[in-house]
Design a protein around this nucleic acid. Structure first.
Length: 484
RNA sequence: GGCGCGCUCGUCUAGUGGCUUAGGACGCUGCCCUCUCAAGGCAGAGAUCACGGGUUCGAAUCCCGUGCGCGCUACCA
């Protein structure tokens, strides 16, 4: 075990967006670092030039930042281990690859992709496991030097020994063992001079003094290659922890094909960062108690790597939605009012003449009834505009032959009210019902319909107070003429 | 195919040999509350703990085998 304060990293390849699975990996690394007083770094693994996406790194960093996950070292936050973009460290990888060649732990390979394809076909036909046949290890030093001098294209491959056991301990899975015969002579340095993941990852984890490698389970099968590399270099092996996968509803690895996978997708759909982070933290980890509502700082206190599960977890939108509603209810009205203002603009509703106080009051009336901010204008547009239509089912259920008359009488009463207070509206309604000798419900339901156009929502008196006396009366009269 | 990992309600999970008639949460159903819709409260349906063998007085929990699922098997990460 490495005896210093923990140093962990999130090492994504910049694909253009932050995958929610990546978010969870980043989060667990972050939580582990914060919990143990360690350091969390961000390293960008951009070693595949074919997959270069402009702006991807910036997007990734922005997404992490939005989630509240700050790194101690990384792009833009140089520590003493930079640069943190692998594409800027090419000479380092080459140096180490060559070192391995010198010690016989790696070798130059000049095989063409055609020969490799042919080899693969043969192995396939014979039912053998695919893998490089060490063909180029038979080259003499002179032959190799000659080819290199001729400028022949080459790669550098790992020289995997035969008949050995490669084992390591995983914090989540315990001891894992692989036979070296099942490990391919992995390419370490590609034809274009870039390293593959395996080389770059091991070299950087060592150089950056990483103590705990916390990454997705998809890396478990290639870990023995990494172990071999650490051993060949004579480096200390970090403690591994392979996280269970995030799954689609059909239990395959969470993919774009079956729904949203990018943090920005969820952000765009109106999910709160607090809810997303909370939800993703619970996919594969629990403190062991019944607590399910967490803020990031609480997760730091509660987190324990030993309590991470072994099996994959389906990304269940229904539970995410519930958590979003929970977090929505805990946020301040002021904060939500600002979000509501943005949302109104997005939905093309002019809210410039509404005060922050008014929007906050609308939030307070609606917050227990929605899971997302965008549902406020969607479900309660009547706080901003008079209803243009009346919900058919509600009209059928609540509007009777006498409704127009009752409502008209109530409108008369409302006009006489002095203060715009919900108690006043309520008192007026009870008085009106008493005088007419009817139940309050006979006015309330048509009233709600008149004022909101729909059958559900906050208490009617709250609605009346919010939209005000004049507007309320106007809506009542208007409804009467339309539905009469 | 090979290698590896996994397997408790539909989903996320608690459970580390007796406290378990397997607990909680989401979702679902019903009731209560109520001017409506929510929220909240209460209740309910929902898991032969993948299956089969062991070990043990006793197993969801330990061991072995089988099955199923998933991941990896690239000059992608």
């Amino acid at each position: 075990m490495i005896n210093e304060t923990p140093r962990v990293r999130f090492a994504p390849s910049p694909t253009g967006y932050l995958h929610v699975g990546g978010l969870r990996t980043a989060l667990y690394n972050y939580l582990y670092a914060k919990k143990t007083g360690g350091t969390f770094l961000l390293r960008i693994e951009d070693t595949d030039r074919k997959r270069f996406v402009p702006g991807a790194v910036e997007n990734l960093i922005a997404a992490l930042k939005w989630c509240g996950i700050d790194y101690d070292e990384g792009p833009g936050k140089e520590g003493d281990c930079g640069p943190y973009l692998q594409s800027e460290r090419l000479d380092i990888y080459k140096k180490y690859a060559l070192e391995l060649v010198d010690s016989g732990k790696a070798y130059y390979c000049f095989c063409t992709s055609e020969r490799l394809a042919e080899l693969r076909k043969e192995q396939d036909a014979k039912g053998l496991q695919p893998g490089y046949d060490k063909h180029c290890t038979s080259l003499s030093k002179e032959e190799t030097a000659g080819k290199l001098a001729d400028g022949a294209p080459y790669v550098i491959r790992l020289n995997v020994p035969k008949g050995e056991k490669v084992s390591f301990n995983d914090s989540i899975r315990g001891d894992v063992e692989f036979g070296s015969d099942t490990i391919d002579d992995q390419v370490l340095l590609k034809g274009d001079g870039y390293p593959t993941y395996h080389l770059a990852n091991v070299v950087d984890d060592h150089l950056m003094r990483i103590t705990n490698v916390i990454r997705g389970e998809e890396w478990l099968p290639s870990t023995p290659k990494h172990i071999l590399l650490y051993n060949f270099f004579g480096w200390e092996i970090p403690q591994f922890a392979h996280l269970p996968l995030l799954l689609n509803p059909d239990r395959s690895k969470l993919s774009k094909r079956q729904g949203d996978v990018a943090v920005e997708d969820y952000r765009g759909k109106g999910y709160l960062k607090e809810a997303l982070v909370n939800f993703v933290a619970l996919l594969g980890w629990t403190a062991g108690d019944d607590k399910e509502f967490y803020y990031l700082n609480e997760l730091v206190d509660a987190f324990a790597l030993e309590r991470v599960n072994k099996s994959g977890a389906v990304f269940d939108l229904q539970k995410l939605n519930w958590l979003n509603a929970e977090h929505l209810r805990k946020k301040s009205s002021i904060e939500l009012a600002a979000m509501l203002r943005d949302e109104l603009a997005k939905q093309g509703i002019d809210a410039s003449h509404y005060s922050d106080e008014y929007l906050a009051a609308v939030i307070d009336a609606m917050r227990e009834r929605v899971s997302f901010i965008h549902e406020v204008p969607e479900n309660a547009k009547y706080f901003f505009e008079a209803p243009k239509t009346y919900d058919e089912a509600t009209v059928k259920k609540r509007w009777t032959a006498e409704s127009a008359d009752f409502l008209s009488k109530y409108a008369d009463e409302v006009e006489k009210i002095g203060a715009n207070e919900k108690e006043q509206y309520e008192k007026a309604l009870h008085d009106c019902a008493d005088r007419l000798g009817i139940k309050v419900a006979q006015i309330i339901h048509p009233l709600r319909l008149a004022v909101s156009g729909v059958g559900g929502g906050p208490g009617v008196y709250d609605i009346l107070q919010l939209i005000g006396k004049e507007e309320s009366v106007k809506r009542m009269r208007n409804c009467i003429t339309i539905l009469k």
